[in-house]
Design a protein around this nucleic acid. Structure first.
Length: 606
RNA sequence: GGGACCGUAGUUCAACCGGUUAGAGCACCGCCCUGUCACGGCGGAAGUUGCGGGUUCGAAUCCCGUCGGUCCCGCCA
């Protein structure tokens, strides 16, 4: 149908006869001469329609509207010097139409403008309903191409490293821990259910036990949990697993993978090795296990200074087992008004959102004088002030913001305030700077976290992470006691405060695996019901292995500078996990439900 | 489960503190225009202000409910 693509035509093509297909991006009808910007996936080129080429041709050109699909035959020619357009790649030439055929019309109004010149933001609801039109627009079209190139870069790299791509089941077994499963009833085995995989975790381990040694997959994962800008009910992981490699080797290899992706997509050489931080240190300094390391404002634990202070908010926090911590905002006195950090202010509200009861502050003035609310000022002596200023390294003009209470909430709050103010006060490097990319490996995660509500330990990553041998003790007798407090051989790759991926060395010893499952409260019987196949396999020559999984949607989101992973997915769902285009999910017939032995208990609340 | 913001013409927005016939750009329709490139000019059509109820002499505007979208908390091994 076509001899060339629109966007590829250049001076070199002058005088050649071409046939093009595409969409009318825009028309400029001058009455005597008509210009058509013809667009295909490669770009746009100007088609010139001259009345000399015949009335029929001209009449068709006059009838064209935006997004009409046309086929044009014509000759490439140089534009008159004064009419060349350096703003577009094909601006030196134009195609003089000899024949023009409408392949498809547009009837009625389009829901929104498609043209590459139109950057007007359309309501997302409308874009999602007519996603096929949105895909035609510049931004999504580019994003999906970057997504493709990202996957290709990963495939190329992994191919060279000797990995093979293997698919794992989509219909699989429900897992007890973790997110809610999407369930699929079995017609053949009445009353039984499949689950869609939350990740290929167990299968990739079994592939290692199956001797594949180096596996990867662009794997679709499903989790029935509430959504966010960076969470969809179905998302894609770049899933990798390998045998006979230790944590350091795996980290080094994956770092090279990331470097090669950034080189391919951004054309930049990321400095290596990426910095490392232990989970513990990250929590101390940033209050989170996914720190944005591109700016300072680190968290300072000042509990010791305020242990015996008369200001009850602080002293009570400490005596009840919590902490008092603070962040120092350089020059914060002039940048941030009291209105914003007192009740009702935006910064105060951010703190409140994270569960903080309040947001205490101290302003450092000339010669270490301080300025704060009376309740704090009246209860602080000069030694405490000096200790505070020394520990926080605060200077005249700086603002100290405090969190006091349960340590988890204090950390969470100060992390949030830190990020909120970094954005607001423009501490972030520009997108063009190499420093924009704040990669960091977070290592030495704890194996478990104690769930107070359920009074039990739960796996921080998942229950297949291997513990650090140093924390285990010499003999299996010690495992039971030592395991809960052990560090895991687990690692997360964090970029700009977002978790890009995470992995671990897996347990390849059946006894240790049973002990870990027991620690999270699974009896031997339950463990066998849920993971019998894995436990069995570990006793049949399971190699040491480990791996990682990257959130592909998030990687592409960062590479494209998007605000949401929806901008990297061809057909995403809304926050209510609905597809506005197909209107899925939807009702099914009674007959369908009968066949799969399912009855609905849903009653409309009305 | 909870909090915040949003919903006005095909679309993007406007319409103060409730007050004539709800306006404008783009798109659409008609006419004019031979070098534009977000072409230009003249004219036109286009609205159940998401939906339902309430307050009021009077509601896009205020209140309640509801539906949908977004952001966030909880949740997401």
């Amino acid at each position: 149908m076509r001899s060339n693509c629109c966007g590829e035509l250049r001076k070199e093509n002058i005088s050649s006869t071409v046939q093009l297909c595409g969409w009318v991006d825009r028309c400029r009808d001058h009455g005597g001469v008509i210009f058509i910007d013809l667009r295909d996936s490669s770009g746009t080129v100007q088609i010139t329609v001259d009345p000399d080429q015949g009335n029929e041709l001209f009449a068709i050109a006059e009838s064209l509207r935006n997004e009409t699909v046309v086929q044009v035959s014509g000759q490439v020619r140089a534009r008159p010097a004064e009419a060349s357009n350096q703003k577009i790649d094909t601006g030196d030439i134009e195609v003089l139409a000899k024949d023009l055929k409408v392949l498809n019309h547009v009837k009625g109004n389009l829901p929104f403008t498609v043209s590459i010149h139109d950057e007007e933001s359309v309501r997302e609801e409308t874009r999602l309903k007519h996603r096929y039109l949105d895909l035609r627009r510049d931004k999504l079209s580019k994003n999906l191409r970057i997504r493709h190139k990202t996957i290709q870069a990963a495939r190329n790299f992994l191919e060279k490293e000797g990995f093979i791509e293997i698919e794992t089941p989509i219909l699989t077994k429900s897992t007890p821990e973790g997110a809610r499963d999407y369930l699929v009833p079995s017609r053949v085995s009445g009353g039984d259910w499949f689950a869609l995989p939350q990740s290929p975790q167990l299968f990739k381990q079994l592939l290692m036990i199956g001797g594949m040694e180096k596996y990867y997959q662009v794997a679709r994962c499903f989790r029935d949990e509430d959504l966010r800008a960076d969470r969809q009910p179905e998302f894609t992981q770049l899933d990798i697993e390998m045998s006979f490699m230790e944590q350091e080797e795996i980290i080094a290899m994956n770092e090279k993978l990331i470097v090669s992706i950034w080189k391919t997509i951004k054309g930049i050489d990321l400095p290596t090795p990426f910095p490392r931080i232990t989970w513990h240190e990250s929590m101390e300094r940033y209050g989170t296990d996914r720190p944005d390391i591109r700016y300072g404002i680190e968290i300072c634990d000042v509990s010791k200074i305020f242990k015996n202070i008369g200001f009850k908010v602080f002293s009570n926090a400490i005596s009840s087992g919590g902490s008092v911590k603070c962040i120092t905002i350089p020059k914060g006195n002039s940048a941030i008004s009291n209105v914003r950090i007192k009740p009702g202010g935006d910064i105060f509200s951010e703190a409140q959102k994270m569960g903080a009861g309040g947001l205490a502050f101290i302003r450092v003035r000339e010669s270490n004088e301080i300025d704060t609310i009376g309740a704090i000022k009246d209860n602080l002596n000069i030694d405490q002030i000096n200790a505070l200023i020394k520990q926080t390294n605060a200077k005249e003009g700086d603002l100290l913001l405090f969190g006091a209470g349960d340590t988890k909430i204090v950390n969470r709050t100060l992390d949030r305030i830190r990020q909120f103010l970094a954005m607001e006060l423009k501490y972030l490097p520009s997108q063009e700077s190499i420093n924009y990319w704040g990669f960091i490996w977070v290592v030495d995660f704890p194996m478990f976290d104690f769930n107070i509500d359920e009074n039990r330990w739960e796996a921080l990553h998942h229950p297949f992470c291997a513990p650090n041998n140093k924390d285990l003790g010499e003999t299996p007798d010690e495992w039971q006691n030592r395991l809960p407090k052990a560090r895991a051989q687990a690692y997360d790759l964090v970029l700009n405060g977002l978790e890009l991926g995470g992995g671990s060395i897996r347990i390849h010893d059946a006894a240790l695996q049973k002990q870990v499952l027991e620690t999270i409260g699974l009896s031997t019987k339950e463990a066998h019901e849920q993971f019998g196949f894995l436990l069995d396999s570990l006793d049949m020559g399971a190699p040491p292995h480990g791996g990682i999984a990257f959130g592909l949607d998030r990687i592409v989101m960062l590479l494209t500078g998007s605000e949401s992973i929806r901008e990297t997915i061809a057909f995403p769902k809304t926050q209510q996990a609905r597809c506005l285009m197909t209107e899925a999910p939807s009702e099914v017939s009674k007959q369908q439900m009968k066949e799969i032995h399912v009855a609905s208990t849903w009653t409309n609340p009305k």
